[in-house]
Every structure is written in structure tokens, then in C-alpha cells.
Design a protein around this nucleic acid. Structure first.
Length: 266
DNA sequence: ACCCAGGCATTGG
DNA sequence: CCAATGCATGGG
């Protein structure tokens, strides 16, 4: 069934991330389609004229898929704002229809970020897939991301066995066992979200900022510590990432995604 | 055999 | 308070 997005929307461009950095078993790119488990059922997303072909599309999968595909981003506002600007004006023209995907689940977003700390995204996705294969429930070509409750019961050694460093294994198990209500974070403002996250061991400024950007889709998220973003900012502006952040207000989040995508495909 | 890759906590000055 | 260090894997 067709899920429509306002034009311009380019599914293939928007999902390029999954292909260039390695998908994982919970977000699997096979046969020109993205596969993900939603409430125990396999859902398949494929490019289609006018939007995305989603199978099955119903009251349960619809909202998750819309969130996954970045429905919360104010892409129209961003494009209007970018028009006539030196760098982003050119990037929105060069990358029409790029609507960055969002991690639909907060627990998955945080664990995914922990796996990606310091190491290459390719290496992170390899480790993550072994983790998902071991502790997530399979449903055809994809697996559900391992549940927080399950991970809370694991021994750290079980995570080390799939490739986590010892510190990261402790971070993930500690987060799972923590009192933090991840679903409640969406009602807090950006500063309070950062504060709550950074208070947990293993979640630093970089992870908190990508949580704002990639899970909550907050417009001002701007991960200044991100190595790739620093390089992209230097490439396009020749300026420090902090200085550029204020120039991009209030569209830092979409700007970051466009700068990163633009730097990848010159 | 190196070195780097979309961090973070811990330790030592 | 800032600099140095360990971490584990995948790719070059």
C-alpha cells in the first residue's frame, strides 16, 4: 500500500545511509527494500511513485513507518529557509527529497549510538547485527531489535562475546537496568533531554545530541563532537563546527544531515 | 604489522 | 581543570 509524502521525496536517496554504512539485522536492506520488524511482524518498504510502498500498512505499522521515514522533519520549512543560502541552498538543490530517517525506538537509538562510539559505522553495524541475531527475535529477513527487558538480564560477558568492548557492554546493560524512562523524554525540552541522558554512564554529549536528532527529530540538534560532521563543516565552510551551528539556527538537525550526505556524495 | 574510524570514562598531573 | 590513556572491531 502506498504511503505518500509531500514532494519532493526520494526514498532511495533518503535511505542511502543504510547502504553506505552497512545496514543491521533490525534495519535490513535487501532486494532494493528496507525491512524492519514492527510489533512482531515483518514490514517491507520499497520505493514507489508518489511515496513508499509499505507492506503491510495498517494502524499499527503506519505510525512507526512514518516516524522511521522522518515525517516529523519540517522539510518544507527547511528548504524555504535554505533557499539563497551559500552552502545549504546548493545542497537542498543537489539532494532533493532527502528526508533523513529516524530511529523509531528510543532504546534502539541509544544502544545503536553506543555501538557507534569511536569506531567506524561499518564496524559498529557488524557488531550490532551479531547482537541483534543473538538476542532479538527473528521474523523472516529481519529481526526485532533486542528488548530492553531482555538485555537487562544479560551478563556483560554475553555482549563481549558478540564484539562489544567491556566498557560498552557495561554501558548497555547499565542503561537497560537503569530507572530512566526513555518514552518520557519526548516531553522534555532539548536541554533537559541532554541532562538526563548524560547522567547515565556511557551516554555522553555526542550520544545525547544524536538522540535529539535521530530519535526525537529535534530541529536544533547539532552534534558538534561528531567526527564526520566536523569534517563536513570544514569542507563546506572552512569554519569551526561551533561557529557554524549558530549560523544554521533553527535548522541545525536537517542541516547536519544534508552536510553529511553532501560530503559523502560530492 | 600497523592506522584510523560519526566517544566516553578514568586517571594523573 | 585539561592531557593522556584504554577500549575492541573492521577495513585500508
Amino acid at each position: 500500500m502506498l504511503l505518500r509524502f509531500p514532494e519532493p521525496y526520494d526514498f532511495t536517496l533518503s535511505t542511502e545511509r543504510f547502504r553506505s554504512f552497512g545496514d543491521d539485522l533490525a534495519n535490513r536492506w535487501v532486494d532494493d527494500a528496507l525491512h524492519r520488524v514492527v510489533e512482531g511482524r515483518l514490514v517491507t518498504l520499497r520505493a514507489a511513485a508518489g511515496g513508499v510502498d509499505v507492506e503491510p500498512l495498517d494502524a499499527v505499522t503506519g505510525p512507526v513507518v512514518e516516524k522511521l521515514l522522518g515525517v516529523e522533519h519540517d522539510l518544507e520549512g527547511f528548504r524555504d529557509w535554505a533557499r539563497g543560502r551559500p552552502v545549504l541552498g546548493e545542497l537542498v538543490d543537489r539532494l532533493p527529497g532527502l528526508r533523513p530517517p529516524v530511529v523509531p525506538d528510543p532504546w534502539e537509538a541509544l544502544v545503536t549510538s553506543i555501538t557507534a562510539q569511536q569506531v567506524s559505522l561499518l564496524s559498529a553495524s557488524a557488531i550490532r547485527s551479531r547482537f541483534i541475531a543473538a538476542f532479538g527475535v527473528g521474523a523472516g529477513v529481519a529481526h526485532a531489535f533486542p528488548m530492553r527487558e531482555r538485555v537487562a538480564e544479560l551478563d556483560e560477558a554475553e555482549l563481549v562475546a558478540v564484539g562489544f568492548s567491556r566498557p560498552k557492554a557495561a554501558y548497555v546493560v547499565g542503561l537497560a537496568r537503569s530507572e530512566l524512562d526513555l518514552e518520557a523524554l519526548f516531553s522534555l525540552d532539548d536541554a533537559d533531554v541532554r541532562e538526563r541522558l548524560v547522567a547515565i554512564r556511557g551516554l555522553g554529549p555526542w550520544t545525547a545530541e544524536w538522540f535529539l536528532g535521530r530519535h526525537l527529530a529535534r530541529p536544533r540538534a547539532w552534534p558538534t563532537g561528531d567526527l564526520a560532521l566536523r569534517k563536513a563543516v570544514d569542507l563546506f565552510y572552512g569554519l569551526d563546527v561551533h561557529a557554524v551551528g549558530s549560523l544554521l539556527d533553527p535548522f541545525q538537525n536537517l542541516s547536519a544531515h544534508y552536510l553529511l550526505a553532501g560530503a559523502r556524495t560530492p
